[in-house]
């Protein structure tokens, strides 16, 4: 696909799902994210692009408070999901992460069976009253992850035995199983071959119907292919945020233009 198709993308405005205001992140002394303001819409794929070390993954990890697991990391500013401040002291980060699912750069299935991988979240959160319900959730999630047909006959096989692309779709199914409202994806295709990447991209487009999807990617083609909104980060700043077609064809900021044309980054 090229930039023309990106232009033709449907950019109708959805309601705001995540609103970040004046977000700053510090790793010890270093200032990783500087005053980021962004509004992420529901039922939309939002892509974060930018050179390595620009803070896009860090910002993504703020959205489900995964940065809490890093001792030296400090976050200031407001991040609201559905109008609720997720850094409020009353919010339980564990509950939040069930609502904001995450898929990581490297496929990371647990060393358990495929079934147990998907059932992990529902079991922890008590989403199924009995085995039949759990079976149903697992099947539904695997179908959502577009991997059901490939694994339905070997649900007891270890998840680590699947191919890289299948593992990543299993991880997506696993994230979907806890019925999140937002799905964060941190370079989900960077460890995959082009065919597996195409499958995942197709899946992301389908997931948009049910979730607000935020994806960090190094591939500008991928951002153009799958996203409706794009945010360009550079050196910890959010340089430009807008409709994907707009960013890729007619960027306002010279830094964005330099990056997407390959002059910096």
């Amino acid at each position: 696909m090229n930039q023309m198709t990106a232009l033709e993308k449907d950019v109708e405005t959805q309601k705001t799902k995540i609103a970040a205001k004046n977000v700053n992140v510090y790793y010890g002394e270093s200032h990783a994210i500087k005053d980021v303001n962004v509004e992420i819409e529901d039922n939309t794929v939002t892509a974060f692009i930018g050179p390595s070390g620009c803070g896009k993954s860090t910002f993504l990890r703020c959205l489900n408070r995964m940065n809490d697991t890093i001792d030296i990391c400090r976050v200031t500013g407001d991040i609201e999901i559905d109008g609720e401040d997720i850094y409020d002291s009353r919010v339980d980060p564990v509950q939040l992460r069930a609502k904001v699912g995450m898929v990581f750069q490297k496929p990371n299935p647990f060393p358990k069976s495929i079934y147990d991988n998907v059932a992990y979240g529902p079991r922890i959160h008590g989403l199924a009253a009995n085995k039949a319900e759990l079976d149903e959730i697992v099947e539904k999630s695997l179908r959502r992850g577009a991997i059901w047909d490939e694994v339905k006959d070997r649900l007891d096989a270890p998840g680590t035995g699947l191919s890289g692309g299948q593992q990543q779709r299993l991880c997506i199914a696993r994230a979907v199983a806890t019925e999140p409202e937002v799905l964060l994806m941190d370079e989900p295709c960077s460890a995959l071959d082009p065919i597996a990447t195409a499958q995942i991209e197709e899946l992301i487009d389908e997931l948009r119907d049910s979730y607000s999807v935020v994806i960090v990617t190094h591939s500008m083609q991928q951002a153009a292919r799958v996203s409706q909104k794009t945010a360009f980060f550079h050196l910890g700043n959010l340089v430009e945020f807008g409709a994907t077609g707009q960013i890729f064809t007619n960027p306002e900021d010279p830094r964005t233009e330099s990056y997407i044309t390959g002059r910096i980054g």
Binding site: M66, M102, P109, I124
Partner: peptide, 27 residues
């Protein structure tokens, strides 16, 4: 045990001890 295992479990909303019991220790 790779950090990605822990991230995966924490990212699903598991607590630390759930992660250790169900993911880290079995691995």
């Amino acid at each position: 045990v790779p950090q990605s295992m822990r991230d995966g479990s924490l990212g699903l909303g598991a607590t630390k001890s759930e992660t250790i019991r169900q993911v880290v220790l079995p691995a």
